[in-house]
Amino acid sequence: MTYAYLFKYIIIGDTGVGKSCLLLQFTDKRFQPVHDLTIGVEFGARMVNIDGKQIKLQIWDTAGQESFRSITRSYYRGAAGALLVYDITRRETFNHLTSWLEDARQHSSSNMVIMLIGNKSDLESRRDVKREEGEAFAREHGLIFMETSAKTACNVEEAFINTAKEIYRKIQQGLFDVHNEANGIKIGPQQCISSSVGPSTSQRNSGDVESNSGCC
């Protein structure tokens, strides 16, 4: 299937926060409570529609465990978007965000769009990190923020798609050079797109979703 752009995403964060579950929910619309530990990188892909454009999201789900980290960080390079995930029921996963963020900033493009995700929002009774803390961290570091539940699918679509919208907005503003592969954006096969993409009048599409749908 043809597409206008391909965006490379990485999913990063501590082990057990639900990175692979978020990917599975987004690509397959299902939740798998028991998942093998990720070693290296696992991949997923899905088409979304942003502003009338078909966009392929190529998602690199990285291993969160410390012993794999030195290897997987080399694959951050060339990502247009990152989902930085913590578990709202485990404070330590929130405390480690700074370290993940430093890694991401160091190994990827300065224009990379980063979505901070507080996952497992269905486990409200076990919450250990307030929503306001996530919001404050995101504000302080210039990230987008959402709480999600890979289990109930709450905000999962929104997290991936809002990241794509932000990348697309940056393309329109000329902040991303789509011809530079280091930015994690590829023009689709047989597409003829000038480097400056003009704004489109089409605003709603089938794969498009409203921001902050508020289910969590």
């Binding site: 070693i39 290296g40 991949f43 694959y75």
Partner: peptide, 19 residues
């Protein structure tokens, strides 16, 4: 093969030191 169209799709990349 990808589920939707049967085209080859990369599933994973694993350091051989862990395989």
């Amino acid at each position: 093969p990808a589920k939707e169209n049967g085209h080859l799709q990369l599933f994973g990349l694993f350091p051989l030191q862990f395989v």
